Simulated assay, not measured.
Amino acid sequence: MRVATASRPADPAAPNEDWAFASQHLTVVLDGQTARTATGCGHGVSWYTATLGAAIAALAADPDLPLGAALARAIELTAARHPACDLGHPATPSATVAVVRLGQRTVEYLVLGDTTVLMDTTGGLRVVTDSRIEAAATAERRAADRHPIGSPQKRAALLRMKHAELALRNRPDGFWVAAADPAAAGHAITGEEPRDGLRRLAVLSDGAARIVAPFARLDWAGVLDLLESHGPEGLIERVRAVEAGDPAGARWPRNKASDDATAVYVS
Rank of each mutant, 00 (worst) to 15 (best):
S23K: 00
P12V: 05
D64N: 08
D18F: 01
A6V: 03
E76I: 00
D62R: 07
H82S: 14
Q33I: 13
P66E: 02
T27Q: 08
R73Y: 02
V3S: 04
I56G: 07
L52C: 07
A69P: 01
L77Y: 02
A20D: 08
A20L: 12
C85P: 04
S23I: 01
A57W: 07
L30H: 07
L77G: 05
I56S: 07
T39I: 11
R36E: 14
E76D: 13
E76V: 03
R73H: 08
E17K: 09
A20K: 02
N16W: 02
T78D: 06
A79V: 04
A10R: 12
A22Y: 09
V45Q: 14
W47P: 05
A61F: 02
A4T: 13
P9C: 03
T78Y: 01
A4C: 09
A38D: 15
T34W: 04
D11I: 04
A61S: 15
T49R: 01
E17N: 09
N16M: 08
A13N: 09
I56N: 08
P15Q: 00
A60N: 12
A50M: 01
R81T: 14
I75G: 11
E17F: 01
D31P: 02
S7Q: 15
A79H: 07
T78H: 02
A10P: 07
V3C: 06
S7L: 10
N16F: 02
Q33R: 09
A20V: 14
R81P: 04
P12I: 00
L52E: 10
A10T: 07
L67A: 09
G53W: 05
S23R: 00
P9G: 04
A72C: 05
G40N: 13
A84Q: 15
N16G: 11
D31I: 01
G68V: 10
W19P: 12
A4R: 15
F21R: 14
P15N: 00
T37M: 13
G53S: 09
W19T: 11
A74F: 07
A70D: 10
T37K: 10
H82I: 06
T39H: 12
P9D: 08
D18L: 04
P66W: 00
R73A: 12
R73D: 14
D64V: 03
T51H: 13
A74P: 11
Q33K: 07
L67N: 11
V29A: 08
G32Y: 11
A10E: 12
R8T: 15
R73L: 13
L59C: 06
A84L: 13
T37A: 12
T49C: 03
D31A: 05
A50Y: 01
N16Q: 12
A70M: 08
A6E: 13
T78F: 01
R81A: 15
P66H: 00
N16I: 02
P63D: 15
S23F: 00
P63K: 01
A54F: 01
